[in-house]
């Protein structure tokens, strides 16, 4: 099985996903060009943010159709302020409008982060200091304390 990842972010996600995949399926090896995929490989394409990542997703579908060695296309996006459901509908609609259809051998999966990928990290109590030194962080904690509240419930300032 081979996996094709589309990640919205260029910084956090590209560090996180390879480690995470390695933890869950250690026998999978990352390749850095689509053409190098053989078996039990994963390829990660990232960058551009929303909405350009939508077009990158269409290009990824075209790539998979041209070279049908991939079994799963996993598209990872941020819900941001419009939320999970709306983001999901937005990307699905974009794919539908493009009239590019993924070959049935490959399955598409969507991972929509509630707000953003960094929100997940805020749930890690080891990362977030109770009394941070930075003034800005103190202000943030005063606005919404992620130590005591669910980071995914965080609201805009």
């Amino acid at each position: 099985m081979n996996l094709y990842f589309i990640l919205k972010g260029e910084k956090t996600e590209v560090l996180l996903y390879p480690k995470w995949i390695n933890y869950i399926i250690p026998h999978y090896k990352q390749v850095f060009l689509e053409k190098d995929v053989i078996e039990n490989n994963f390829y990660i394409f990232s960058g551009g943010g929303i909405p350009s990542i939508y077009n990158h997703t269409i290009n990824a579908i075209k790539n998979i159709n041209d070279n049908p060695v991939f079994d799963k296309l996993i598209v990872c996006l941020d819900g941001e302020d419009i939320g999970i459901e709306e983001r999901l509908q937005e990307i699905k609609k974009h794919i539908e409008n493009s009239k590019v259809v993924l070959n049935p051998k490959c399955k598409i999966e969507f991972v929509i982060q509630n707000i953003c990928i960094e929100t997940w990290f805020l749930g890690n109590r080891k990362i977030v200091k109770k009394v941070p030194e930075g003034l800005m962080l103190r202000e943030f904690i005063a606005h919404y304390n992620v130590n005591t509240n669910d980071p995914e419930e965080l609201k805009k300032i």
Binding site: F32, L33, E34, K35, D36, I44, F45, S46, G47, G48, H56, I58, N59, A60, K62, N63, D66, N67
Partner: peptide, 17 residues
């Protein structure tokens, strides 16, 4: 050799380590 891809070449490139 980046191979054939529908992604922009530069995007392919900047995804490479």
């Amino acid at each position: 050799d980046l191979g054939k891809s529908h992604h922009d070449r530069f995007m392919n490139l900047i995804n490479h380590p």
